[in-house]
Nucleic acid binder design. Structure first.
Lengths: 213, 213
DNA sequence: CCTTTCAGTGAACATCCGTACACTGAAACT
DNA sequence: AGTTTCAGTGTACGGATGTTCACTGAAAGG
């Protein structure tokens, strides 16, 4: 069982994992066009280069595939928030840099964010619920980060969650806008970025003057 | 051509229109479960009670059906904004009443809002673009309404659009939350309403103190 | 009264779908 | 060396899919 692999090229587990990843990659491509509900097992396996029945060696159902895609996509999102956290904690630059990091991530992991945006409301129930749950965890993380900001350290946990929810919704919408922006017209994307920054600033200003009215 | 209908019961055009509406109704039901991309023409026509080919007497393609659904759904949304406009213009109560009207509309026209939320990001490209366009019009309307509010009459058109966009995104997310809330637990919905109200208030407070920081 | 229009019919089609089943062959283990 | 495991194969199936075409029959128009 715990033998060192004798084959020079590739062990069996490695091959399997490689096929699994190939399935996930192909699924992300196909889902981007028609959505998970309209995903055909046959064209998926054809894109991977395996026979339809071989799919079941890796996933017991399409729903399970969907959940794996949720995991994979949110791993990228967690990378993003980690990177954002490393940035400078000054309030002035944090908005610009956060949006910039978001844009960069959306571009490099385009298929992940397309998947999340697509299946968040549209997907199969079990996948939609999984995404919703992950976004909730994400909001909670964001809320604890927000609590460290100067004006917000006296806020209740609930108010922080409400604010985090608003921010996450705005950022998801921003991500989808960027995905839909024509690549040959960079000024459209600049406009989206400016809008996102203004919205974040509006929220922050609102937070700074909260309960003062 | 312009004869008064001689038949007592129903004229031919009326029958056709009735079938058309039945198709739209059935489509809204089916789309709620799996999305427009996974809609089957056969089960749709079976639900209506007509033969598959009869569908083409009303729509030349599924995409066209989708666009008709967009029209129909946004007609409901326009009713809503009209109703909201009629409300009292005092700032204090406008948030609570707006959210209340939203909730009421989402409940009575549940399938329309489900459709919009589902197909906004997830749908067939042409439908997604149509929804995006309608939401843009809606944002523009909202922006002109916002311009009449006390603190906002000096704002630039662009800033108003940015704010309207943020509000619309938050409200769409709220609508979907309400749709997903379990009907047997009204306290969940109350929580969603409270969150939506707080978010709107946060935005309004931000707007009131805009550029003052 | 005769003709036209046209919403809906019903059979037929080629194609794609998911999945069951027995299989192969090489890697992994004893 | 012999055995087991198992990722991937290949066939075959019953059923659902979208679209075609010629049709029916009642309402609308002349």
């Amino acid at each position: 069982m715990r033998r060192v692999e004798s084959t020079a090229a590739e062990t069996r587990q490695q091959r399997k994992e490689r096929t699994r990843q190939a399935i996930l990659d192909a699924a992300l491509e196909l889902v981007a066009e028609e959505g998970l509900a309209a995903l055909s097992l046959r064209q998926l396996t054809k894109a991977v280069g395996i026979v339809p029945t071989a799919f079941y060696r890796h996933f017991s159902s399409v729903d399970e595939l969907g959940l794996a895609l949720v995991d994979r996509s949110f791993a990228s999102l967690r990378d993003m928030i980690r990177e954002t956290r490393r940035g400078n904690p000054e309030l002035s630059g944090v908005i610009r840099s956060s949006v910039a990091i978001l844009v960069q991530h959306v571009h490099s992991d385009r298929t992940y964010y397309r998947f999340i945006a697509r299946e968040r409301f549209g997907g199969v129930p079990v996948v939609r619920r999984a995404i919703r749950h992950e976004l909730e965890l994400f909001e909670r993380e964001l809320a604890t980060d927000l609590a460290r900001l100067p004006h917000l350290d006296t806020w209740t946990a609930e108010d922080l969650r409400v604010m985090a929810n608003l921010i996450v919704n705005a950022m998801v919408a921003t991500a989808e806008d960027i995905l839909d922006a024509p690549p040959e017209r960079p000024e459209v994307e600049r406009e989206i970025v400016r809008t996102a920054e203004k919205q974040l600033r509006l929220i922050v200003v609102g937070a700074a003057n909260w309960r003062s009215t």
